[in-house]
Design a protein around this nucleic acid. Structure first.
Lengths: 345, 345
DNA sequence: CCCGCATCTGACAACGTTGTCCAGGGCCTA
DNA sequence: TAGGCCCTGGACAACGTTGTCAGATGCGGG
């Protein structure tokens, strides 16, 4: 008895191939290929027969084989921190739209802010031979990407610069935005201003902290340690940080929140405090205009970041740009009330 | 003179292949394959030599070729409406996590609520030979998927059922949720309750409308045409619809909003109205607890939807389940104030 | 009527990987 | 020392597609 199966591995449930279509249509393999790809040199009659066979068999070209042959996958990868974060949704969508306009699919993955996972994801995408990568870096050493870039994988970093390699990067002006936001508070009479932000190893967090410091310095105000809380974004610790700043004999009269998650929690805390405390947040938050007071924010345009990065990526793929560039997009201060509150004391 | 290039198409910038690695390490091609895949039967010394060659050349296995040979891509597709919608971010992330746990990558695309684009995307994903598909359908006819499913592409629909084919589907209890939400308003004394929702051709919208009708009927209240606005989600038209309901001699005293986008706009409108109008929205909205009054919502768990669907998908891929099933997840009424306001008159 | 040309078609190799199968060599045992 | 077995390594085909190139077919003009 023959134990060997006709097909050793069941594969795609025995999908029809061009060969099958060719057999059914009574034409050559290459003719089917021509029809499928809309290449010229096929008589209408032959084309019709092939089309019928395709319909009848439910044939669908195997892009894996196509990729293997052609070398281009028409897909790009996007590695970001967390798709569930409202900041990244629009960014991802913007990248997708640009990709779509260039006929490419988007594969994306979340690094969960873990450098190891970022690398793992990026390399997995490279193994799929994506044509290009848009990366929002979690780590700060991207030398592992050098062979990939050398091999022709277009790469653009977004939101934070690459570490230890020279690559295109598109970011928001975190420094300027934070400085303006803090200056806004100062202009409204505040001096004791708290800062709650992420770990300074994250570029944007460091830049925003730098902006905070610069604005305070411009105003000639010495910053007290108790006003700063770094490396804190989870709700529990942000809450504690905010409450600490607001307690004691000499509390802050205003808070600058380093990103959208921090802002949201600070809003919660402030809603429970009986005296008015001013607030400016980095990143816009949904419904920020409907709160009372409305939340004044330094807004960055996530979609524009994504769009710019993706366009830059495809320009690389078209072989246009070669010199890595750093593109910085301006932020926008949106005043809604919370940042215009005067000091409470 | 020879005009033909050494390599006709430049391809991946001449990436090293296993052959190159083998040559450099002085071993056979298959031995490299064994090392790369961690297969047994390679002496430590040989393995070391191969590893060194891999490092030196920056070799990365070409997964396209691997896929072609093995038949499984270890990737799944997710087609949703709009990644920028806060409802889909967590859903997508949940699917990704499950995929990751099964060693698969996630390719996702936005249909923009366009049936044609949905089909285009799905077929593109099938051409990539994704192992499975999670689809949030935009269209209502999915017979085009029949050959794919027959060919072994695992498929799960989420949020809305498939049209004209029998397939797994995971959804929220839109009918029950909407009925409960409206009943909640009725329990607080409302009778003239407006409904603003999406086009009834969308399953969830139809179900929510049905829930609204059922609750009203249970209360013995005849619905007036002026109370209902269907097929309306963009801010401008929602605003107009809400304003219309609130104007006139006999305005509604409460509004049931059919999804998160509608809710947000209705909140905006209500914040401009001088009398209190009750509101219950379908879908939770961020910061809904911080508004005054807090927004009472019928919440669905987007992440749980995604997780359930993805797990079901991988169960299909493991060949466990065969009979298409319909899984309905309960919704949860979250009372925060806006739904408990009494009628204004 | 035949030749030449243009148009259409198909055979074949190659893409980079993995599965199958066989060869060679070392080691243990009789 | 010879025989057999196990362990390691490599040659080869195949996956489904596309590029190359040459053959077939048909048509018009000389």
């Amino acid at each position: 008895m023959d134990r060997t199966a006709r097909r050793p591995d069941s594969r795609y449930g025995n999908r029809p191939t061009m060969k099958d279509v060719a057999a059914r249509a009574g034409v050559g393999l290459k003719t089917v290929s021509r029809v499928v790809n809309g290449e010229p040199g096929v008589t209408p009659d032959t084309e019709r027969r092939v089309q019928e066979a395709i319909e009848a068999l439910g044939f669908r070209r195997n892009d894996s084989a196509r990729v293997l042959r052609k070398g281009r996958t028409a897909s790009i990868g996007l590695v970001l921190e967390d798709l569930a974060d409202p900041f990244y949704g629009p960014l991802s969508r913007a990248v997708e739209e640009v990709a779509r306009a260039h006929g490419a699919l988007l594969i994306n993955g979340s690094s969960a802010e873990d450098p190891e996972r970022e690398q793992e994801l990026v390399l997995a995408l490279c193994a799929r031979r994506v044509d290009g990568l848009v990366v929002i870096p979690a780590g700060d050493d991207h030398r592992y990407l050098e062979p990939e870039i050398a091999a022709g994988v277009a790469t653009v970093f977004v939101d934070r610069p690459a570490g230890k390699i020279d690559a295109d990067v598109v970011l928001s002006d975190s420094f300027g935005g934070a400085r303006d936001g803090v200056a806004h508070l100062i202009a409204h009479g505040h001096r004791r201003i708290g800062f709650i932000g992420d770990q300074p190893r994250i570029h944007t967090a460091a830049e925003r902290l730098r902006g905070y410091r610069a604005a305070m310095e411009d105003a000639g105000t010495a910053i007290e340690d108790a006003w700063m809380s770094l490396g804190v974004t989870d709700p529990v610790r942000v809450r504690k940080a905010a409450e600490d700043m607001l307690a004691g004999p000499d509390p802050v009269t205003a808070i600058f929140a380093g990103n959208n998650r921090v802002t949201v929690t600070v809003v919660r805390v402030l809603s429970e405090v009986d005296r008015p405390v001013a607030l400016v947040g980095f990143d816009d938050i949904e419904l920020g205009d409907l709160l009372r007071p409305g939340v004044t924010v330094v807004a960055q345009d996530a979609a524009q970041l994504g769009r710019t990065a993706a366009e830059r990526l495809f320009r690389q793929l078209d072989g246009v740009s070669v010199v890595p560039e750093r593109i910085e997009l301006p932020t926008r201060l949106i005043t809604r009330g919370s940042g215009e509150l005067p000091p409470a004391d």
